[in-house]
């Protein structure tokens, strides 16, 4: 199969790659570009561990083709902190111990960032439904919800 040439922007940087037509964006990120922060938990869009933002839209990168990234703006966990400055969500996840094993954490952080961008002052219920596409098996979600609430408060004040 001939490769597809793709020109795109990832975390603000211009990136070019060749990928197969049936290759997912997740495979491209992990296997071609070395961006292994997005995780494959299921490969079927059920767990959210591979969440990335494509043009302001939260997606499961396992359900997007690598070729579809052409001309888009893609945001992954690797671009969330600014230099050595953690994003408030990252900081609050640490402070609240909103992770145990941490495999779902990149997906949760991306999904939470997307949620707060669209709804800066969510209720607990809105957070719970906003993050319902991301599975966590360790925490029971309690500390994740609290971390997002706390981060929302910090970000409102900022």
């Amino acid at each position: 199969m001939a490769g597809v040439a793709v020109s795109t922007t990832i975390n603000g940087d211009h990136v070019e790659y060749l990928c197969q037509p049936d290759e997912t964006l997740l495979e491209v990120l992990r296997d071609r570009l070395g961006l292994t922060g997005a995780k494959e938990g299921c490969g079927t869009g059920d767990c959210g561990a591979c969440s990335v933002i494509v043009d302001d839209r939260l997606v499961c990168s396992c359900l997007v083709l690598g070729a579809e990234a052409e001309g888009r703006q893609i945001e992954t966990i690797e671009g969330m902190a600014h230099g050595d400055q953690l994003h408030p969500l990252q900081q609050k996840f640490l402070e609240h111990a909103a992770l145990q094993c941490g495999i779902c954490t990149p997906g949760f952080l991306i999904a939470a960032k997307d949620l707060l961008a669209k709804n800066p002052d969510p209720t607990e219920e809105e957070i719970r439904f906003g993050l319902a596409g991301n599975l966590c098996r360790c925490t029971g979600y309690d500390k994740i919800v609290r971390a997002v609430q706390d981060a929302a408060n910090v970000m409102k004040g900022a």
Partner: peptide, 9 residues
């Protein structure tokens, strides 16, 4: 498995 919106604190 339970998702965030299935559970209370």
């Amino acid at each position: 498995i339970p998702v965030c919106s299935d559970l209370p604190m």
